[in-house]
Computed example of a mutant assay.
Amino acid sequence: MMKTNTTPQYTQDPSFKTLKKISTVMDEAITVPGTKFKIGLDPFIGIIPGVGDTISIIISGISLYTVARNGVPPRLIMAMTFNLIVDYLIGLIPGVGDFIDIFYKANRNNTQMLVNYYEKNPDAINQVQKGSSGLIIFAGLMFFLILGVVGLCFYFIRLVIFQSMGWE
């Protein structure tokens, strides 16, 4: 009797593999001993104020970029982007954000949405079908807000360092 391959074809796609690897590293790399709960590097990287969360969103953005190049619908890309923006904004809250980041797993959610899309589950993109143009505008505004906040943080850090050293 011939054995059939039950592995879905999309799991062999390089962009899916990239998303899955980044999702595992960032959200589920370590199993908490004695439980089934997993934690990734994202909350640990996020401990570094501002910079850590920026590094996390850049790493997560790499997987999003590879998936977007692969012809995934813009609505799904926007939903995945929204997950990353929410994760970034949560991480910016000192202390509390890092704790919440342990439970809010944007990369894992993105992987699941992509699996749902590949398996033709319409619920995968329902959340953005109602108002995708509004979500696009919101995501764009959030991106510029994040850039502004990070830029201001670096400006004030530089200002404080220069003033404390007596430089003008």
Rank of each mutant, 00 (worst) to 15 (best):
108 R>I: 04
116 N>V: 00
104 Y>P: 03
112 Q>F: 07
81 T>Q: 05
62 I>D: 00
109 N>M: 14
94 P>T: 03
93 I>A: 05
91 G>Y: 04
94 P>G: 05
64 L>G: 02
95 G>H: 03
65 Y>F: 14
122 P>H: 11
103 F>N: 07
76 L>D: 03
66 T>R: 12
97 G>W: 10
80 M>C: 07
89 L>Y: 02
64 L>P: 00
103 F>Y: 09
100 I>E: 00
89 L>H: 00
105 K>G: 06
114 L>K: 02
104 Y>I: 02
130 K>T: 01
104 Y>F: 15
75 R>K: 11
96 V>G: 00
80 M>P: 00
74 P>F: 04
81 T>H: 00
66 T>K: 14
100 I>C: 04
120 K>S: 08
110 N>Q: 13
111 T>G: 01
91 G>I: 11
95 G>I: 15
94 P>E: 08
124 A>Q: 08
112 Q>H: 06
116 N>W: 06
100 I>R: 09
84 L>V: 06
70 N>Q: 14
77 I>W: 00
106 A>T: 13
70 N>C: 11
93 I>H: 03
121 N>W: 01
127 Q>V: 05
88 Y>A: 15
81 T>A: 04
131 G>P: 00
69 R>P: 07
119 E>T: 08
66 T>D: 13
75 R>V: 14
72 V>T: 10
71 G>I: 05
92 L>D: 09
69 R>N: 14
79 A>D: 00
117 Y>S: 03
128 V>A: 08
103 F>M: 10
105 K>V: 03
78 M>D: 01
95 G>C: 14
67 V>P: 04
105 K>I: 04
93 I>G: 02
77 I>G: 01
100 I>S: 04
90 I>A: 02
74 P>W: 05
114 L>I: 01
89 L>I: 09
126 N>G: 08
100 I>Q: 04
98 D>N: 15
101 D>C: 05
131 G>H: 15
92 L>C: 05
114 L>P: 02
97 G>S: 13
94 P>H: 05
87 D>M: 10
122 P>I: 13
98 D>S: 14
119 E>H: 02
87 D>A: 15
66 T>Y: 13
103 F>V: 13
108 R>M: 09
63 S>D: 10
122 P>E: 14
87 D>K: 13
86 V>A: 08
99 F>C: 06
84 L>W: 10
79 A>M: 04
70 N>L: 11
81 T>V: 00
79 A>R: 02
119 E>N: 09
131 G>W: 12
131 G>V: 10
120 K>C: 06
96 V>C: 01
130 K>R: 09
113 M>V: 04
82 F>K: 11
129 Q>I: 12
118 Y>H: 14
